[in-house]
């Protein structure tokens, strides 16, 4: 009986080893396949976009349909304007919600109201961004009776709140309790401890977290389609339609003109560079800040 069993093990072992090798191979393949699109997208964006990046691209506004040339200067400025407006709304709102959750949200932020707030933030970050566009349209565009930079900025600002809030809250939570207690032990009221010790102490990482959310919204297109709309000329005021890089890329990409396609690639190159740079920077700051994420195991 015992021998018989040992034989059994020996016979099936070769097959198990083969399955093991096969599955491990498949996992490596899965990882390769998953990151392949990144290289392809990046490669094409660089290859196609680089040739269209020239002085005119950064300084000129679009030429009328059919004429070769022109640039995306107005769209670049427009994106900057929209992101600035969004930051005015999203950053203070997001940071104060994060502060509330981490400092007043009950024990370890698990109070009941804190739970509702966190749930709302989660839902806000996961509903499709185009829905936020619909909301802002109803709220601002219908009231003002025109598409405007303000409407676009508000839509992007709303989208920023959950991202800013989550990264900030995570960072605040990393600050050990004894730091707060040290401040309280000095006889400082809690709000002073929060403002001068907690917030000031982690402003570096919080700033990077915020930059990441800026990078994210600067690529948003869908909520701008019927809030900021688009504009072929330089912007004339915050209550007027405004061009933006992503919307311009979209418009050019689905157009039938080769020259516009080239410019769409160039715009995409700028956008991708911006996003990658921000992400890399965040990675560097977070990893060197001593608060790197816990690795599995030890």
């Amino acid at each position: 009986m015992q021998r018989h069993f040992a034989d059994y093990i020996f016979r099936s072992y070769r097959k198990r080893k083969a399955i093991n090798a096969l599955m491990c191979g498949l996992l490596v393949l899965a990882a390769t396949l998953a990151i392949f699109p990144l290289f392809s997208v990046f490669g094409y964006v660089v290859a196609q976009g680089y040739s269209a990046l020239n002085w005119e691209f950064f300084t000129a506004v679009p030429k009328p349909v059919g004429e070769i040339g022109g640039g995306m200067a107005n769209a670049l400025l427009g994106t900057c304007t929209l992101v600035a407006l969004a930051s005015l709304i999203g950053i203070p709102w997001g940071v104060s919600v994060a502060l509330y959750l981490s400092e007043y949200g009950g024990k370890q932020g698990r109070g009941r109201f804190a739970g509702v707030v966190r749930f709302s933030a989660d839902m806000l970050s996961s509903i499709p961004s185009i829905i936020v566009g619909l909301f802002v349209y109803a709220l601002v565009v219908i009231t003002m009776r025109r598409f405007s930079a303000v409407a676009g900025g508000l839509a992007l600002g709303i989208l920023m709140i959950p991202t800013v809030c989550r990264t900030t809250e995570e960072l605040l939570r990393m600050i050990p309790e004894h730091i707060r207690e040290a401040g309280l032990a000095l006889g400082l009221p809690r709000w002073k401890v929060i403002l001068w010790i907690i917030l000031k102490g982690s402003r570096g990482p919080i700033t990077t977290g915020i930059m990441l959310s800026i990078a994210r919204v600067s690529g948003e297109t869908a909520p701008l389609l019927f809030t900021a709309f688009n504009n072929r000329f330089w912007q004339s005021g915050l209550d007027q339609p405004i061009a933006s890089l992503p919307v311009q890329i979209y418009t050019y990409a689905i157009s039938p003109y080769d020259d516009w396609h080239r410019q769409a690639w160039a715009g995409a190159l700028l956008l991708v560079m911006l996003v990658f740079a921000m992400n890399l920077l965040t990675r560097v700051v977070f990893n060197s800040g001593g608060n790197s994420k816990k690795q599995g195991g030890n």
């Binding site: 990144l38 997208v41 964006v45 990078a215 994210r216 690529g219 948003e220 297109t221 869908a222 992503p246 890329i249 979209y250 990409a253 769409a264 690639w265 995409a268 956008l271 991708v272 996003v275 990658f276 992400n279």
Partner: peptide, 9 residues
């Protein structure tokens, strides 16, 4: 992190 519109392009 790549924007949706770039994937579309």
């Amino acid at each position: 992190a790549i924007p949706s519109v770039v994937y579309g392009l």
